[in-house]
Design a protein around this nucleic acid. Sequence first.
RNA 1: GGCGCUAUGGUGCAACGGUUAGCACGCGGCCCUUUCAAGGCCGAAAUACGGGUUCGAUUCCCGUUAGCGCUACCA
Length: 503
Amino acid sequence: MTDSNDKTPWVRVRFAPSPTGYLHVGGARTALFNWLFARRHGGVMILRIEDTDAERNKPELVQGIIDGLKWLGVDCDEGPFYQSQRTELYRAAAKKCLANGSAFLCYCPADKYAGGDYAESVAQDEEPKGTGPRRVTRCSCRDGKPSMPGAKPAIRFKVPVGGTTKFADAVFGEREFSNDEIEDFVLLRSGKGDEEFGQSMYQLGVVVDDIDMRVTHVIRGADHLSNTPKQVLLYRALGATPPVFAHVPLILGADKTRLSKRHGATDVNMYRAEGFLPEAFRNFLALLGWSPGGDEEFLRTKDLIQKFSLEGVSRTNAVFDRPKLEWFNTQYLQQLPIEELLPEVENELKRSGLWKPEWARGAAPGPDGHDHAWFSRTVDLLRPRIRLLPDFSTWARAFFSDDFSCDPAAKEKFWKDPKVPELLSKLADALGNLKEWNHDACDHATRAVAEAAGVKAALLINAARVAIVGQAVAPPLFDTMVVLGQQRVVRRLHDALAASAKA
RNA sequence: GGCGCUAUGGUGCAACGGUUAGCACGCGGCCCUUUCAAGGCCGAAAUACGGGUUCGAUUCCCGUUAGCGCUACCA
C-alpha cells in the first residue's frame, strides 16, 4: 500500500473451482495465493464456478466452497459466476474458431479415446518398452473425413502441425512445448437430443472467461502446466493476448502421493469443524509452497498481503504436515489478541452447549458477582493449554461439572501440615490484592508468599488447591480456579480455613 | 508408453558460485513444574547418484534414478 511502484491497479485474478467436491486444501491454497496477490496489488478477486460437466457437477457443493473461502478470509470482489449459465458465450467462441479455421467438426464417437489406446496402455503397464500403443494426437476428421458420418459432431481445436508454443510462467519461467505433443482437444461437446452442440469443455471455458473477465494473472495448480500451451493456442485463435501464468506446486500427503481422503481431512471445512483458527490455518497454508524469503514463520494477514509475491513461490510439491498446522494453531491461540480470540471461544462453547449468557463480554458481573472481565481472564489463562478450540469445551465441562478426581492421600497430607492454614490466609490476601490477573501474576504472588514463609511454592500451591474445593482436584484446574474468580477463591479459602480450625 | 515438471535433514522453507549449509515443525535430552500445557537451553538429523563448466559448486549444464503432473466429448 505504501509502495506505489508495486501497485498495479489493473490486476485481476480469479479462483475457479469446479463443484465436483468440497473445497480441499490444495484449492484453498490456490484461492489464498490469488487473493493475496490481488490484495497486494490492489487488484480484483473473481470467483468463478466451473460447472460445465453436468455429469459430475454437484450444485449443493457450491455453498460449502463459498463457506470455506469465507472462513479462510478470502473475500471475492466479483462473482460467483457460473459457467453453466454462460454456454452461449462458449458456443460463439467455438464457432468463431470454426469460422477462422482454427477448429473443425469432429464426428468421432465420444469414447474413441477414452476407452481406446491410452486406457489400455495404462491398464496393462507390462508392455515391452517402446512398443506400447501411441496416443493419436491428430484426428482424421480435421481433414474433412468424418469417421462416422451422420453422428452429431463435437468441435475440436486444430492444433498446428510442427512448431512450438511458448509462454512465460511467473513461477516456472519460460516454457516451450512442441505442438506435435498436443492433441486436437475438444472445445465443445457434441449436442444431445435436438441441441446442435453441448456444453463447453474446460479449455474453452477458462480461456473464454479469462478473456471476458479481463483476467491478468492466472494463478493455479501446477497440474495445469501441461494444459497451458493449449490455452495459449486458444487465446491466439480468439485474437487475444495470453495473461501471465503462475503455476503453484501441488500439495501431497505424508506418503508423497497426491493428497486425498486417504490421508485424512482434505476438506477445509473439516478443519474449521475440528476447531482450527482461520488465522492459523491461513498462515500455515501460505507457507506451504511459498516463503517470504527469510526465517519468518508468523505472518498475520497484513504481513502476508504485504510480503506476498509470485517470486517467492516454490516449484517443488509440498507435503501437508498436520503436526505443524497444529503447532501454528497453538501459537495463534496464545498470540492472538484476546479480543480476537474471545468470539472464537464463545462460538465453540455455544456449539457444545456450555455457553452461559452471563459470560458475554461487557455483560453483567460474573458468577461471583464481582468480576467483570471474568470470561476474558479465564480464556486468557486457559489458552496455553489448548491445542484446538474444542479443548475449551473440555475444560469448561470439567470445571463446571464438579466432577474432580479426589486424591485422599493429598488431602491427608494437607490437613496434617501445621503451617498450611496461616499460609493459605496469606495467599488469599495476596491474591485478593492483585491488580493484574494473569497466570504470571498469580504465580508470582504465590511464590512470594511461599518464599517469605520459607516453604516450597509447590507445597503451597498444592495446599491451596486442596483447600479451594475442600478436596483434591484435577491439578491443571487449580490455576484456572485461581483466576476464574478471585472473590470466590478467597471465600473458599476462608471457609476451608474455618473448617480446619474446627478440626 | 509419450511429453513435461521437480529434487537441501522425517516435514516446510533459507542460502539465488565462496556460509562452520541457516530457520521452523517433529524427534531426543535437560531446566521449570509434586500435575497437564506453555516457556527456556542443548542435541541428533540434509545438499538423491554420476559426469562436466569453474580457482571454487547446494547453486550453472548433461545423464541416471526417484516422485509428481498431463496425455478424457473431467476440471
